[in-house]
C-alpha cells in the first residue's frame, strides 16, 4: 500500500478531551482541501472521539493506529472547509 505523507503533523500528547479535538480542528481548518493531517495523541478516549467528530464534520479518517503502549497516530484527509 502506498505510504501517505502527511502535509501537517501535530503532537497533542498530554491533552485531554475536548482540547484534543479543538486542537485537531484548528489545525485542519488552516489546511487546504485534500491535504492530510497527522495527529499524535495519548489520551485513549480521543482515539475514538477524534475520528468520530472529524467524520461528523465531513472530514475523511484514513487510519487510526496504536503505535506503542501509550500513543496513537490518526491520519485525516481534509474534505471540506
Amino acid at each position: 500500500m502506498e505510504e501517505i505523507i502527511p502535509d501537517k503533523r501535530i503532537d497533542i500528547r498530554g491533552l485531554k478531551c475536548p482540547y484534543t479535538f479543538v486542537r485537531s480542528k484548528l489545525a485542519i481548518e488552516q489546511m487546504n482541501t485534500g491535504e492530510v493531517l497527522e495527529v499524535l495523541l495519548n489520551y485513549p478516549e480521543a482515539s475514538v472521539s477524534i475520528p468520530k467528530s472529524m467524520q461528523d464534520h465531513g472530514q475523511r479518517v484514513l487510519s487510526v493506529d496504536k503505535i506503542n503502549d501509550t500513543d496513537w497516530i490518526i491520519l485525516i484527509r481534509k474534505e471540506r472547509d
Binding site: 475536548p18 482540547y19 479535538f21 479543538v22 486542537r23 480542528k25 484548528l26 481548518e29 464534520h57
Partner: peptide, 21 residues
C-alpha cells in the same frame, strides 16, 4: 489563538458553524 483563548472559546470552536475561523 493563545492557549488560553483556545480553552476559553473551545465550546465555540467545536461547533461546525463557528470553528476557529
Amino acid at each position: 489563538f493563545t492557549d488560553d483563548q483556545i480553552i476559553r472559546y473551545s465550546r465555540h470552536i467545536i461547533l461546525p458553524e463557528v470553528g476557529g475561523k
